[in-house]
Amino acid sequence: MAKTGWDEFEIGAMLRTFDGKIDDIAGTIQENRAYSQNSSFSASVSDWRIEKPIFSKDFCIDCQFCWIYCPDISIISRDKKMIGIDMDHCKGCGICVEVCPTNPKSLLMFPEQADEEAELAKWPAKQAKEK
């Protein structure tokens, strides 16, 4: 469906968050919601990023620190597992990397143009504890 331009809505028109009705929003995960074009969920801020996080699940302990402290609802956790990053909404702040407690970290920042597969293939190894 073609998007209506910001200056094409009828004056006084009601803009809704969802297409159709959701009775229990808190009980409906994002992929089951029909967001309208007027929810910022339908927009993207990916062009804000200079750096991006990459997630390596090998060492992840599903602590969910990244989920709770991500300001941009960009850590996708389902059934208590961290499963990936929402790259449309991630602004590349790097908080998730800072709070990730594993050794090596399960999230690291890379330049926006970095190749995910290549970076995952040479993920750093466990670091010896500095004393």
């Binding site: 929003i25 808190a26 009980g27 409906t28 995960i29 994002q30 929810s39 910022s40 969920f41 339908s42 927009a43 993207s44 801020v45 804000w48 599903d62 602590c63 969910q64 620190f65 989920w67 709770i68 300001p71 941009d72 609802i73 960009s74 956790s77 389902r78 059934d79 208590k80 929402d86 449309d88 909404h89 991630c90 602004k91 590349g92 702040c93 790097g94 908080i95």
Partner: peptide, 21 residues
């Protein structure tokens, strides 16, 4: 925190707050 992470957020991304706000 694991249990908390099953919450379905009612606040959405692509808002215009600064990165790290």
């Amino acid at each position: 925190l694991k249990e908390f992470s099953t919450s379905a957020d009612r606040f959405e991304g692509a808002n215009l707050l600064c990165p790290g706000c």
